[in-house]
């Protein structure tokens, strides 16, 4: 049972890294970015290709899996996303679905529709028994890395000037810009970090989900959205708790009641939206 809890936490941590960028986009600019998964796919592909074609070691590919989507994110944000900030949610949805529709054939065209596998280095393979609980070493690695990222993000948000500006802008962008905060620049940087984290998440997730393939953006779009809706769209903590809840429920649900499978997490999402439309773990009293 503890093993399942452990796997669930590892999966939840992964979802957190994948989705936290989306939660900021949604919270800061009220922007529905359904194409978030495409950035995660890019990160996953970066790692898989560098390892399989160039022989770069796994750990060395991770910074690139972060950087590539972050750079693409800045480029797209500057040129395209920017034009749609004031637009209706319908236009934003259409635009980002369009991007997803473009990203999938591009990946298919260059890399084919077979999943690209990420082969873990030896020291991350295998399991250890620890007090009767079987622990996958890679799962442990994921929890450590993602936990460190979550902690770093939280410190960054709480402790730095940039973080304070970001929190102010999420609470009320208009007042924040009235106080002289450059919300545009803030958003570009945050968007880039979010895309980068998605890419890193994609790279880390490749082994867990059985390789990266061109349908990745659509397959995981729903999971991201659930994390954001359950966690609420402000703050690292909400997204983290949402992701953990989802990860544990998903893994436990598939193990204990396989007959209803993914039904549980969808039901949780709809229920969460009905009870607290602003997110289960959101601070009350916000917008």
């Amino acid at each position: 049972m503890l093993t399942i809890l452990f796997d669930g936490i590892a999966y939840g941590m992964l979802l957190f890294v994948l989705a936290c960028g989306l939660s900021v986009t949604l919270g800061l600019m009220n922007f529905v970015n359904l194409a978030h998964g495409a950035f995660a796919m890019l990160g996953g592909y970066a790692t898989a290709l560098l390892m399989n074609r160039c022989g770069v070691p796994f750990l060395a590919t991770l910074p690139i899996a972060f950087a590539a989507p972050a750079i693409l994110g800045v480029a797209l944000e500057r040129t395209l996303y920017r034009r749609l900030y004031g637009a209706s949610p319908l236009d934003q949805v259409l635009f980002t679905i369009g991007l997803v529709f473009m990203a999938m054939p591009i990946a298919n065209y260059f890399l084919g529709d077979q999943p690209q596998q990420v082969h873990l280095p030896l020291f991350l393979q295998g399991r250890v028994e620890w007090g009767g609980v079987g622990i996958g070493i890679y799962r442990l690695f994921i929890i450590l890395v993602c936990g460190a990222i979550a902690a770093a993000l939280q410190m960054f948000l709480i402790g730095t000037r940039f973080g304070a500006q970001l929190r102010a802008a999420v609470d009320d962008a208009r007042v924040a810009s009235g106080l002289g905060i450059d919300v545009d620049r803030l958003f570009t940087i945050t968007f880039a970090i979010g895309c980068g984290l998605a890419g890193l998440g994609g790279a880390l997730a490749a082994d867990v989900v059985g390789g990266i393939d061109p349908t990745f953006p659509v397959k995981f779009m729903v999971s991201f959205l659930i994390v954001v809706t359950v966690g609420g769209s402000n703050g690292v903590l909400g997204a983290l708790l949402g992701a953990l809840l989802l990860g544990v429920l998903d893994v436990a649900g598939k193990y204990y009641v396989p007959s209803i499978g993914a039904f549980i997490i969808y039901a949780v999402m709809v229920a969460a939206l009905l009870i607290r439309p602003q997110g289960l773990f959101a601070r009350s009293g916000g917008r």
């Binding site: 749609l84 679905i97 991007l99 999938m104 298919n108 529709d113």
Partner: peptide, 20 residues
Amino acid sequence: PEYWEFWIGLLLVALVLAGR
């Protein structure tokens, strides 16, 4: 046959950016 979605996506993005 495999890549038609790309053009549909492009059309969608163009429609939104041009202001439907």
